[in-house]
Amino acid sequence: MSLVLPSELVVERFLPTVRAMLATRLADRGMTQQEIAAELGVTQAAVSKYVSGTGGGDDRFRDDPETVATVDHIADGLAGGELDAYDALAELLSLVRSLEDRGPICELHEDVMPELRGLGCDLCVRGLDPDVRAERDVLANVRTAARTLASIPGMADSVPNVGTNVGMCLPEPRDETDVAAVPGRIYAMGGRIEIPANPEFGASKHVATAILAANDADPSVRGAINVATDDDVLEAAAATGIDPLEFDADYEDRGEHLRNRFEDRGEVPRVAYHRGAFGIEPATYVFGATATDAAELIETVLDVASSS
Rank of each mutant, 00 (worst) to 15 (best):
M1D: 09
M1Q: 07
M1F: 07
S2Y: 02
S2E: 14
S2C: 02
S7G: 02
E8V: 01
E12S: 11
R13Y: 14
L15K: 01
T17L: 01
V18F: 02
R19Y: 04
L22D: 03
L22P: 03
A27C: 02
G30M: 04
Q33N: 12
Q34M: 10
I36C: 05
A38M: 05
L40C: 01
S52H: 09
G53R: 06
G56A: 06
D58N: 06
D59S: 10
R60Y: 02
F61P: 01
R62I: 03
P65W: 06
P65V: 15
T67Y: 05
D72M: 02
E82P: 00
Y86T: 13
E91R: 13
S94D: 13
S94L: 14
S94E: 13
R97V: 15
R97C: 07
S98D: 11
P104M: 13
E110I: 00
E110T: 05
E110G: 03
D111Y: 04
M113D: 08
P114R: 09
L116N: 08
G118H: 03
G120C: 03
C121A: 10
L123T: 11
V125C: 07
G127P: 03
P130N: 05
P130A: 11
D131Y: 11
R133W: 05
E135N: 02
R136N: 10
D137I: 08
A140M: 01
A140W: 00
N141V: 03
A146R: 01
T148H: 07
G154R: 05
G154F: 03
M155L: 09
D157G: 03
D157N: 05
S158M: 15
V159T: 09
P160K: 11
G163P: 03
T164C: 14
G167V: 06
M168G: 04
L170R: 15
L170T: 04
P171G: 12
E172C: 12
T177R: 09
D178H: 10
P183M: 09
I186G: 04
I186M: 07
A188M: 07
G190H: 01
G190C: 04
R192V: 12
P196D: 11
A197F: 06
P199E: 06
P199K: 03
F201E: 08
H206N: 10
T209W: 10
I211H: 02
I211C: 02
I211P: 09
D218I: 05
P219C: 08
N226C: 06
D230R: 08
D232P: 00
L234T: 07
L234W: 06
A237S: 13
A239S: 15
G241M: 08
I242V: 15
I242A: 09
D243R: 14
D253T: 00
G255N: 10
H257V: 00
R259G: 07
E263T: 14
E267K: 00
P269F: 07
P269L: 06
R270P: 09
R275I: 04
R275H: 12
R275G: 10
F278I: 08
G279H: 01
Y285K: 00
V286W: 01
F287H: 08
T290Q: 05
D293T: 07
D293C: 05
A294T: 10
A294Y: 07
E296F: 00
I298T: 04
I298L: 15
E299Q: 06
L302Y: 08
L302P: 01
D303C: 08
D303Q: 05
